[in-house]
Design a protein around this nucleic acid. Structure first.
Lengths: 148, 148
DNA sequence: CTTGACCTTAAAGTTAACTTGAATGTCAGG
DNA sequence: CCTGACATTCAAGTTAACTTTAAGGTCAAG
């Protein structure tokens, strides 16, 4: 199978597949006489797995560390450990999202529940004071660094 | 107030504050005779707000579009609209995280619930087949693009 | 024998949100 | 007067995961 067909079948682009090879996520593959890459059917499975893992929040580095040389010989414990840690990561993010959401709803409330007897500017000051008095949240950047 | 003190009081770095000014998120501030930036007390509030909004998932572009020239004159409807949309974004992400988590737990289950009478390699094939038969999820990249 | 679809490489571009580095200026204290 | 802590600018580096571009081979079909 040439790279174009593999791309079709896996749903990735050829450039992405070459990129994965370049960074060592995919091992270098056989070449035909003309230099074209020639993939075994298994490659579709591997690319599918990579996409799946990415969808679950694994970085390419994490995936590289877990993907076995041979699809039938996984490092069982490392894999289960990584999966479990990823679940914990998701739970952390879920908690944070719930807080962010509650916070936003609260702000919307404060803005809209402006007493009729005060003007916008005063209300703005009131909302601002409450907001900045409240706890400042962890910046989102630290989360992006952790993969979501 | 010079930039160092503002940095102290807001918890941001001086380079970050200059960066915000460079990209037009902060309007250019007064300079002293020596060229040093001189901030009003209000600047602490503005930086606090920016950090807060970032923590809630707003990009700098979104924040720039919402931050008013004058802290007391917000574009009420645009603001509430943006906050509401952000809540919706969070809900989308929450749903996706819930699915990812369920998926991961399911995979862990499949791996560990290997019948005693089949070997690892066979189990690996079984798990793989099930996995790749299932729906492929949206890649995480498209989420990062949307701010989380 | 030429067109067009496909393949190859290496290098550079993309995005967001900053940081880091280099070169230089300012100012208060000892 | 010198030192050290601050300030300034501009350019370039960082990270992740790719894509895009440029310049060029390969190959089947008409």
């Amino acid at each position: 199978m040439k790279i174009g067909e593999l791309a079709q079948r896996s749903g990735l682009t050829p450039s992405r597949i070459r990129f994965y090879e370049r960074i060592g996520l995919l091992k270098a593959v056989d070449r035909k006489a003309n230099g074209y890459r020639s993939y075994p059917a298994e490659a579709v499975t591997i690319l599918g797995l990579i996409a799946l893992a990415q969808g679950a929040g694994f970085s390419l580095d994490e995936i590289r560390a877990l993907l076995p040389v041979d699809l039938e010989h996984w490092e069982h414990d490392a894999l289960v450990g990584a999966l479990t840690r990823k679940v914990a990561d998701i739970e952390t993010l879920q908690a944070r999202l719930a807080r962010s959401k509650a916070h936003l709803l609260h702000v919307i409330d404060e803005i809209e529940a402006r007493p009729d007897d005060i003007d916008c500017a005063t209300n703005a000051r009131r909302v601002l004071t409450r907001l900045l008095g409240e706890d400042a949240e962890m910046p989102v950047a630290s989360l992006r660094a952790k993969q979501f």
